[in-house]
Every structure is written in structure tokens, then in C-alpha cells.
Design a protein around this nucleic acid. Structure first.
Lengths: 189, 189
DNA sequence: GTCTATATCAAGATAGAC
DNA sequence: GTCTATCTTGATATAGAC
């Protein structure tokens, strides 16, 4: 896992990059080991040395995705403006940033593959979401607003993940501002 | 299509039922024509007479799903309490009802299959979502609240679709009430 | 309109050389 | 650690009988 501070990417990482790209390009249901091997620049044998089965590859994709979101969230934590519903604003900002940057596509498609081929691969994701709920609950001044803001971000992310979003850039900007307003000011009484 | 007011279900419908059940049970990526045929009580040849390809079957699944949601929404319209953001409340109530009843599982998995195997199958869904946005925009007293409420419902539905929801029954009830409050009272100033 | 039988092919996985 | 070659399975789709 470690030991790659300098030097080129390990095969493992090249493979994971290739798989993520492919899922985004050709769809989750069409991800094959042949295609991943070709994209990563090695043979199917070499691929299967690194990941002994397709399930193992998918599992690693999911885990890397979780780690990326988690890292992004934690590095954002220091920069967040103080105020109410901190945890919910942190989650919201992280997800909204990743959607924009195109990184979310990878997240999305990883989820798709997983739940299509083997729903149990989503177990780690379940864990993260449960933990997030606990954190949001423990760190919210207005729980209703925090949960709604979080869910709205989830909804927007999901639409964008599947290329189903009907929103223009202006719409989206308006929505993001509305979410922030909800998280800082709450629902009307 | 018509001509089945009385009498037992057409083969077409038995097949679509079987496919929907199977996707919910074994996952989208494992839906095979053999399994559908067996569940529907006919042979693979008989299945392929009704739907000449797997894509045709998936397309019909998506379309039926869209029609079911649309029908549910329209039959709810008459019963909706008057008030602000009518269209958004209508969409929200429809989706939240379907989630609960388990019907949403079918919706979800239909989407999964589609986007996993052939993203273009989601084109009709894109159309519905765009149309919904237009209706919500045209019929909202508080557009920010309407969009946020809609997105929160989407977020909750999506989590439940993938069995990722971390919410207890109490949590969920609280969230549903908060969404209704948001849609009727808006965001705090 | 539904059946059986079969063609065809793609994909995951294994074995052993280098 | 990576390669080539091969095995095996399972799935879509076709052809033609009933």
C-alpha cells in the first residue's frame, strides 16, 4: 500500500485508474477485465495477479472512492466558516465540489457497478453513511435543516451522477445557494 | 396494448412483472432472459417473441415504470390539499409513497439495469425529469423551497432505492414532516 | 404464439512459461 | 510480477417444428 512516495504509480493504482475511467466511459455493466487490462497497459494475467477476481477489483474501487471523499471532507474541515450545522455544511460542500469537478462521475459509476453486480459490495458505503448521520446528528443546531440540506445534496448528486440533471448552470447555482441558506438559517417557522 | 380489460394478464405483462421482481431479488446485473422466462412461466423462445431483444425488454420496463409514477401522481392530484408549491408537494408525496410501498424498489432497479447496460435507455427518464422541472417552476410560490424539497425527496428515494438509507422509522417520519414544512413555509429569511 | 435445439460469443478464471 | 494460452460457463439470439 505504502512505499510509493516517489517513483511511478504502482500497477494497482494504474489498474484502479483505468477501471474508473472505463466505467465512466462505457458504463458499469460493460466493465470487463479485458478492457481494464488493456487500458491499464498490462495483460489480463497481470491484472489478475494484482486483483485475484473481479469482485476484488470492484471492492478496491469502492474503497478508494470512499477514501477520496473522506480525504476531501477532512481537508475542507479546516477551511469551513464557523456557524451552525457545521457537519452538514461540510458534507454538502464536499459532495457539491466533487460533482462539479467530474470526480463524482467516478463515485457514481463505482456505486452503479457495485450494486448491479453484487449489492454486498456496498456494505462499506452503508457504514460511511451511517457514520455521517451520527456526526450530523451530534453536530447540528437545527437537525431538520441539516438533514434536509444533506438530502438535497444527495438528490442533486444522484441526478448528476446519472446524467439526469435537468438544471442549467444558473439553476444549479441558485440551488447551491439555497442549500447554504437552509443550512445556516433553517426552515421558516 | 389494449384489449385486456377483462381476462388474465397478457404475456407481455407477466414478463414485465417477472423481470421487475427478479431485478429486485437478484440485482440488476444478474437479470438474464432465462431467469425472466422461467419466472414468467414460458420458454425463452416465447419471451423473445414478445420482446425481440433484451434491450427491448429493458426499454419496456423503463416505460412502464414511468407510466406508473405518472399515473400515481395524477390520481393524487385531486386529493392534494390546496396551498403553496402544489406541484412540488405532489411530486414529493408521490415519490415518498412509492418508496414506502416497496414499489420504488422496482423503479430503482429498473434505473439500475438501464444505466448499467445501456445509458441511452434512460433518455425517456430524462424527458420526464425535465418536464417535471418545468411544471415545478411554473407552479411554485417559493421556487427555492420547491426545488430543495424536490431534491431532498430525490435524495431520500435514492438512498432507499439502493438500501443505503441509515434512517430509522422515526428519522424518516421526521424528515417527511420537515419536507412538508419546507414546502409549505419556505426557508427562513 | 410458444416450444426445443442449437449457434455463437464474450467473459471470468486457471496453469504454467518466462 | 507479468505474459500467453486455454478452459469453462453462461448468456443472447436464431431457426424451424408444433
Amino acid at each position: 500500500m505504502l512505499g510509493n512516495v516517489r517513483g511511478r504509480k504502482s500497477s494497482r493504482e494504474k489498474i484502479l485508474d483505468a477501471a474508473a475511467e472505463l466505467v465512466a466511459e462505457i458504463g458499469a455493466g460493460r466493465l470487463t477485465l479485458d478492457a481494464v487490462a488493456e487500458r491499464a497497459g498490462l495483460s489480463k494475467g497481470g491484472l489478475l495477479y494484482n486483483f485475484p477476481s473481479k469482485d476484488a477489483l470492484l471492492q478496491a474501487m469502492i474503497q478508494r472512492m470512499i477514501d477520496q471523499v473522506s480525504d476531501a471532507k477532512e481537508s475542507l474541515r479546516a477551511q469551513m466558516a464557523p456557524g451552525p450545522n457545521l457537519e452538514a455544511r461540510l458534507v454538502a460542500t464536499t459532495l457539491l465540489n466533487m460533482c462539479c469537478g467530474g470526480k463524482m462521475q467516478e463515485v457514481a459509476t463505482g456505486l452503479m457497478v457495485a450494486s448491479a453486480e453484487n449489492p454486498r459490495l456496498l456494505d462499506p458505503v452503508r457504514g460511511v453513511i451511517s457514520a455521517t448521520l451520527e456526526q450530523v446528528k451530534a453536530n447540528s443546531d437545527d437537525l431538520d435543516a441539516a438533514l434536509l440540506g444533506w438530502l438535497a445534496v444527495e438528490g442533486l448528486s444522484n441526478l448528476e451522477m446519472h446524467n439526469l440533471s435537468p438544471f442549467s448552470d444558473q439553476d444549479r447555482e441558485r440551488i447551491v445557494q439555497a442549500i447554504n441558506r437552509l443550512l445556516t438559517k433553517g426552515i421558516a417557522k
